[in-house]
Design a protein around this nucleic acid. Structure first.
Lengths: 206, 206
DNA sequence: CACGATATGGAACGATCGATAAATAATATC
DNA sequence: GATATTATTTATCGATCGTTCCATATCGTG
């Protein structure tokens, strides 16, 4: 996250706010996916001319990469906050994660489900690199969850016979499924009841 | 499923096997999704000229609709067989369903995951009808699962405080998540351990 | 104020998209 | 075998795809 100040030489200043443009691009890619979102769509939605978008992000793939980071910095950070909260027990952390998934995946103001899961579910071979970008994010997020569970296991918060890697994969799988459910119109209450059932029979110690 | 024999009038016979063409089209749409699969791709893969495909299926959407039915008649039927097997207990039926999901989603000879979940996860507004076709299939499959659970509940196979609708949505959510996991490279053993953990939540009577 | 540097708006690029027209080939029926 | 009907081949359609060129606009610096 260290960013060299990029000492400006001169020239006309950028006429649009990068983050504001990315926010609008996030919505488009989130809703329609990578392939079904055209540069013309992005120009229409953001009000920024194509040449300016290319000057700022190189190409469509570069714009999408910036969109991924923007989504991660805004939505994902909030979703995964309980995992990084040292005040929460392991169970509370996972409970908070699933509750936030239920609410954010069904949030009326944004497209349903999770951007990371649906924005590039299936793409052409030419866009394989795009699919890989999101896959890496998904795998990294899962690894973060598993690490949290491993810390909990090390502190005796899980039953001795519990494999944190399997439990983490299970929790992550439920979240991914909840995203599909939300896309298909599941309400927040339905998602919460799914989360509750996943948390049922939590392998607590003792 | 009733099909009028479509009494042929005359004319040159079709030069290709419809099901064979659909099988190849299934693979393409399964792997790349609806938007990222072009008619040129389909022509190259099937060896059938574009005009012939249009004569047989009207347009790309019509071909995709036929592909959905072909997938349902081949892969989905096998996946959901345990649900319709009267010899199995409710638990065994769900267990069989998840086991088949684990193996078929990671089957080396086919694209990873489930066609129904990933072939049109996010599409353009112009293709909204396509997305709806698959969503209806997903919802119908979930309803089928819930009906099976309701029958089990009626026969006392579930704990009295269990809501079959919630349990069915949970099982279905895990399956949808398993599809994403398979897409991201999960092995059959990893998927099976996820399924096992989901079944650990099983609300048996007594 | 002049100059270099960067951003913008508008027009346009070649490629590919889904889809079709027209001519020809191959069958069933009479 | 003549005719009606359907399928195939080939070429091509207008629209849209991602991308770029070019002239102009607007800044920091000398």
């Amino acid at each position: 996250m260290t960013e060299t100040k990029a000492r400006r030489r001169a020239g006309r200043p950028r006429g649009f706010d990068t983050d504001a443009v990315l926010d609008k691009a996030v919505r488009l890619f989130w809703q329609r996916g990578y392939e079904a979102t055209s540069m013309a769509d992005l120009v229409a939605e953001t009000g920024v001319a194509a040449a300016s978008l290319y000057a700022a992000f190189d190409n469509k793939a570069g714009l999408f990469a910036a969109v991924i980071e923007r989504y991660a910095a805004t939505f994902s950070v909030h979703l995964y906050a309980p995992i990084n909260d040292p005040a929460l027990s392991t169970y509370e952390a996972v409970e908070g994660l699933l509750e936030r998934a239920a609410s954010s995946f069904s949030e009326p103001g944004t497209p349903a489900g999770c951007f990371m899961y649906s924005a590039a579910a299936a793409v052409s071979p030419a866009s394989a690199a795009i699919e890989c970008l999101l896959r890496d994010k998904r795998i990294a997020a899962e690894a973060l969850l598993i690490e949290r569970l491993q810390r909990g296991a090390a502190q005796g918060e899980l039953a001795a016979n519990t494999d944190p890697a399997v439990l983490g994969k299970f929790i992550n799988t439920v979240m991914e499924g909840m995203s599909v459910q939300a896309r298909d119109g599941a309400t927040i209450n339905e998602l919460l009841s799914i989360a509750t059932m996943a948390l049922d029979r939590w392998p607590a110690a003792i």
